[in-house]
Write a protein that binds this DNA or RNA. Structure first.
Length: 471
DNA sequence: TAGCTCGTTGGACAA
DNA sequence: TTTGTCCAACGAGCT
């Protein structure tokens, strides 16, 4: 029997239920298709494409070059492949994005009509989105009850060990090369961006072990400090399915049960919650979950948006974060909240702008997590933050980067500035600035908004939204 | 059912 | 310097 395993966001061999099933049934034809039918909201951004390129090369290599890589309409290509390679069955692991659900349903029907056996499995989530609903059958909208429900009532499975020796691959008709996808940019900025990452299954497993060895022990408190190495940095690996959450959970079983561990598990469940929200509210990437936010008086200001994107706002902790994003394809979680709050509240710009920029720049860009997180920051989402919770970029910097190590790493022009002025350089006396070799507005921007008055403006905008929504 | 509690990540200000 | 309190009000979720 010959089974085609359609790789999507499950670019790994271990704990891959679809692949394991295919392997049990006989010969396997492993296929990856860069689907050109995807809508704009799902097409990977530039940073993600660069990661995908490396990840596919790693997967192809671990399959001895036996991965068939194609670009085109998955819906059109799959029936043709099945015919050409005399395929009897097709397996894949489920994707929960609205487009993928609709596409996969159509493909399943069509292949079944052709007499093939089609099986989809859960390779990406600890809990199926339709399992985690309230007693009345409606989806959870608040994280904490969702978390308690999942942990108390839903079982997770053990990882599936693939005996790679038993993997028998169908010989390809011709050469297949990741190069054909043209996923990397013509100017090779991706090489420096990815220099600190190791895309692929081996890199993901190594990252998990490194985190268990040196990060998780101080996770609960350390995760708030961007200069520390206390976060897992597993998100891009999870997004591309280079590692499964089940495998992570199983590996955590060996670690001592304490606050740090429970906090990390909570973060894994936040990922589940984002997928749960996207599944139940497919318009999450574009529409305010709370309708009253349709009345919010957003400001369109391309100049300030550009300053935010390029890390030139004049607020060092914001600029450090935005430059980290540009340079590394990632940003520390604490700083993500600070820059998001700055865009949405201090600049009162629509969260769509932030979502779009993150989508293009992040190597871990994920439709569910990105959409749910931006809506959370904007206050328009489920379980929203109160509107008056506006991060102050000065005090956040002082509190969470007290030595300025993180900020100075990405703003070398402020290297000589004493840390007492690092987060509000415009308040530094002239002689301190000149001794530090800084002319504000030349070496480093003057602040593009006043944090106090822009906070007042944001609060007024929320009041205005409520007034309009009431009418 | 009706009532109660709580909501991932904060800021400002007073004491 | 640290700690406590208020900032609104509403709806989700639970008992």
């Amino acid at each position: 029997m010959r089974t085609l395993h359609w790789f999507r966001n499950d670019l790994r061999l271990q704990d891959n239920p679809g692949l394991a099933l295919a392997c049990e049934q006989g010969e396997v034809l492993p296929v990856f298709i860069f689907d050109t039918d995807e809508p704009a909201e799902s097409v990977p951004g530039a940073a993600s494409r660069a990661w995908l390129d490396r990840s596919l090369r790693a997967l192809s290599s671990s399959l001895g070059g036996g991965l068939l890589v194609l670009k085109g309409s998955a819906e059109g290509l799959l029936p043709d492949l099945c015919h050409r390679y005399s395929i009897d069955a097709v397996t894949w692991n489920r994707s929960y994005e609205p487009f993928a659900i609709a596409r996969d349903t159509r493909i399943k029907q069509s292949l079944k009509a052709d007499g093939l056996t089609v099986t989809s499995s859960n390779g990406a989530l600890l809990y199926e989105p339709w399992e985690s609903v309230k007693k009345d059958g409606t989806p959870y909208r608040v994280f904490t009850p969702f978390y308690k429900h999942c942990r108390a009532n839903l079982a997770t499975r053990a990882p599936i060990n693939l005996k790679t020796k038993r993997l028998r691959l169908v010989p390809l008709e011709g050469p297949s090369n990741v190069d054909a996808l043209h996923l990397t940019p013509s100017v090779p900025w991706d090489e420096t961006m990815l220099s600190d990452w190791a895309p692929g299954e081996a890199g993901a497993l190594a990252r998990l072990e490194a985190f268990l060895a040196s990060g998780i022990g101080s996770y609960r408190l350390g995760r708030d400090y961007p200069a520390q190495q206390s976060v897992s940095r597993l998100s891009p690996h999870l997004h591309f399915g280079e590692i499964s959450p089940h495998l992570i959970l199983a590996r955590l079983a060996d670690a001592p049960i304490d606050d740090n561990l429970e906090h990390f598990v909570k973060e894994l469940v936040w990922r589940e919650f984002a997928h749960h929200l996207l599944y139940h509210f497919p318009e999450l990437p574009s529409k305010n979950l709370q309708e009253k936010f349709d009345w919010f008086p957003w400001v369109e200001d391309p100049v300030r948006l550009k300053a935010w994107q390029s890390g030139q706002t004049g607020y060092p902790i914001v600029d450090a974060g935005m430059r980290e994003l540009w340079q590394t394809g990632s940003m520390h979680n604490r700083v993500r909240m600070i820059v998001a709050s700055f865009l949405v509240k201090n600049l009162t710009q629509h969260w769509h702008h932030g979502l779009q920029w993150f989508w293009d720049c992040l190597v871990d860009a994920d439709l569910a997590s990105n959409s749910a997180s931006w809506q959370w920051c904007a206050g328009s989402g489920a379980d929203a933050a109160p509107y008056f919770r506006i991060f102050n970029p000065i005090t956040q910097g002082q509190r969470f980067d007290p030595d300025g190590t993180y900020t100075k790493r990405f703003l070398p022009e402020l290297e000589a500035l004493p840390k007492q002025y690092l987060f509000d350089p415009w308040n530094a006396p002239h002689d301190v600035l000149s001794a530090s070799g800084i002319v504000l507005g030349k070496d480093y921007p003057a602040p593009i908004v006043d944090v106090k008055s822009s906070r007042e403006h944001a609060l007024q905008a929320f009041a205005e939204m409520k007034r309009r929504a009431m009418l």
